[in-house]
Nucleic acid binder design. Structure first.
Lengths: 341, 341
DNA sequence: TTGTACGCGTTATCAC
DNA sequence: GTGATAACGCGTACAA
């Protein structure tokens, strides 16, 4: 091992390792001159305190883990972007784990992370709603954990979410106002928190407007592009909805493709509204009416929340839930056309 | 510190720490029965070998760092997705760093990473083409580094790129074949490798078809959404191009917005082709003709390349450059309309 | 203000 | 096949 370490640097300067060490910690007493001397020499020799040695010593990794179901998705990219920024500002690094909506991967990641590799976890849970009590198994030793967006409701941990119920209610109401009476709800997992809450908003909006709730119009989709294509085409031809509310962006795209294919005109024959963080929703054909979540901000706030926990002494009362507001942005996919059309 | 460690586990089983350690390494001699016994107890007590201690001992972090200019971008999300998968399959974790195209951040990240935190780096360089010789300063101690997509040409390190020159040539030629004669090239940084190579393809295609190269038609854009909006609107109204080739996706979107705004019809008044990894390019209005890079595969291959280096003994000759092929997918934004239109 | 010495949790080496 | 022990690089009591 010929690489530089604290001992070599100490020798080079005729100082002890502790003095060197002190030069790199802010809190220690050290002569200002020796400190600058040390830092200069350190830069010259390209010395940096070894991260693993420090962390072993301090039992802190200055690293947080981010676990998401998928990456190739505007929402999660933006959220991670927000998390990354806050982490960096706090001197933390982030590890990324993608579950591909696979529950087992999620469990493995979490278990693995409890080896000291990360100080805390920010997670949006996988789509499979199996027994997730595994999170409680860690007991008091569980790493600080913050959920965002997709949460397990029965796990007690801080979370950052959006006003999904309300947005869904308003989204459905918007479709009704635009003249829709047979409104489909497309969802990937209706038993998962997010799909469930959004569905309830949909159901209640129908009720408010005295529209019969037809369970058939709840369309269960999957994570597979090909499967969804078939499912949605069938739903459109058989159920003949005049409006569709999709719980995730991907299903709106799939609906568009299906409509192109079946020569169903949006918005004339079918109106579409979707949860989506897509920045180019205005460029779609037709432009897509969206419920836009503040994705970056959700990431930022989740990170802030985690740091609040990490910096607390476990004494203070911590915030347990933060609800951010989504915005409905009306575009052409839900346009009400003149009657004489 | 009441958390579990190897010593406690050893005590609980009346064994020595070495035996415990052996149970977790595959190569060691150990009685199969004791091994199962140990692993069972470990699971029961939720023991996991401490990552930092192992790494301090072994001088390996089993972690790779990924540095990208931005995250909220399909291309990089997909690339990271590919990297993540390969890393996980190899038992590695990935750290993510976003430079926001800021050269200083890039330098800091790289320098910081040389403290043992990562075993290797996969990077797409920042847009600023300053002095990047800093990478050579590390000399023999530089971490294994693989570039992808955006590279520094004067740094000697393996890289995964696409056939940019060729794609650009063909893209420009496609516009010419569709009848364009005044073709603009929109670029963020024409001195950066990627912008330069793509520009050369553009220039040579013009030459081949005996179209005068007008330097004015090279439009220098920025990373700011608002600035680009102005720049592009000006370019469209003043230069009156009949075709536009954009070097990055974002500029194609900006062009669309500008056209909507100025009531310029695509493809009638202006044809647009762009580098883009957008999966929903067919859903745009009009659907966008793209040069699609195999983003996920680029990530995968970059990771494979890095692992090849990490697993080599520095003896074998290593691949230094891998060129993947992009595909031009023709859609409506470059449609040639009937003459009598 | 600086130096000495120990321990963080693990694994490799060497005995047995 | 298993146990004792030193070492990885660093930070902090404690001593000077």
């Amino acid at each position: 091992m010929d690489s530089i370490n604290i001992k070599k640097l100490a020798e080079a300067l005729n100082l002890s390792t502790s003095t060197i060490s002190r030069a790199f910690r802010d809190n220690s007493d050290i002569n200002a001159d020796t400190k600058t001397l040390i830092l200069a020499k350190a830069k010259e020799l390209n010395y940096q305190p070894n991260h693993y040695a420090s962390n072993l010593r301090e039992q802190k990794s200055k690293t947080i883990a981010v676990i998401v179901p998928e990456l190739a998705n505007n929402y999660f990219s933006q959220a991670i972007h927000g998390i990354e920024r806050v982490a960096r500002e706090n001197g933390y690094h982030i590890l990324i784990y993608v579950t591909d909506d696979d529950y087992n991967k999620e469990v493995n990641f979490i278990r693995h992370l409890h080896n000291g590799r990360a100080d805390g976890i920010i997670m949006s849970v996988s789509g499979e709603a199996n027994d997730h009590n595994y999170l409680n198994k860690f007991g008091a030793k569980r790493l600080p954990l913050v959920f965002f967006d997709r949460v397990y409701e029965d796990i007690e941990t801080p979370r950052v979410i959006t006003n999904d119920y309300n947005s869904s209610f308003l989204a459905t109401e918007h479709l009704i106002e635009q003249g829709c009476r047979r409104i489909g709800y497309l969802v990937v997992n209706k038993s998962l928190s997010i799909g469930k809450t959004r569905m309830q908003g949909y159901i209640d909006a129908l009720a408010k407007h005295h529209i019969h709730f037809d369970e058939q119009l709840i369309v269960d989709c999957s994570n597979s592009y090909d499967e969804n294509s078939i499912i949605i085409k069938n739903a459109l031809t058989q159920l003949k909805p005049d409006g569709v509310f999709t719980s995730v962006e991907r299903l709106a795209f799939a609906t568009y493709y299906a409509c192109y294919n079946l020569h169903i005109s949006i918005p004339r024959d079918l109106k579409v509204i979707s949860f989506s963080s897509l920045e180019i929703a205005p460029l779609l054909n037709p432009s897509l009416t969206t419920i836009t979540q503040p994705a970056t901000e959700i990431g930022t706030e989740a990170a802030n929340m985690l740091f609040k926990i990490l910096n607390s002494n476990g004494i203070e009362k911590l915030p347990s839930e933060l609800v951010l507001q989504s915005k409905i942005i009306i575009r052409n996919s839900t346009l009400k056309l003149p009657e004489n059309q």
